[in-house]
């Protein structure tokens, strides 16, 4: 998928991945790739700024952990983040219905 098509939706995707539970950056990106069947494949380093932005906005929170002797930042969804994700899902449902109706004729 073209990366510019993902850009506007990356925040929602990250929130959705983290709804399953806390994870560090590598896990988040791997899960994003796995759930999308490899469709959402972007330069992995460019995902971290989005995680930082979501944290600055209060939608995620994070803390340092040491896992397997390696220092990692673990992210988790906050209550405002869960609410934002619910809004994104509702918006996406409306948007996808409209797109399908026009593009596919469903």
């Amino acid at each position: 998928m073209r990366s510019d098509r993902m850009k506007g939706n990356l925040d929602a995707l990250l929130l959705a991945v983290l709804q399953s539970g806390a994870a560090h950056g590598y896990e988040v990106i791997a899960e994003l790739r796995r759930r999308s069947g490899g469709e959402f494949d972007m330069p992995e380093g460019t995902v971290y700024p989005s995680l930082h932005k979501l944290e600055n906005e209060g939608l995620l929170e994070s803390e340092w952990d040491v896992v397997d002797g390696r220092r990692r930042r673990t992210y988790r969804l906050t209550a405002p983040g869960a609410a934002a994700l619910a809004r994104e899902r509702a918006e996406w449902a409306r948007f996808s219905v409209g797109m399908n109706a026009v593009l596919v004729g469903l």
Binding site: P49, H52, R70
Partner: peptide
């Protein structure tokens, strides 16, 4: 702090990969 955090996360990610 921001630069250091990005760097630490980048290294952890690369080593995991």
């Amino acid at each position: 702090a921001g630069v250091r955090r990005t760097l630490v996360e980048a290294e952890a990610h690369l080593r995991d990969a």
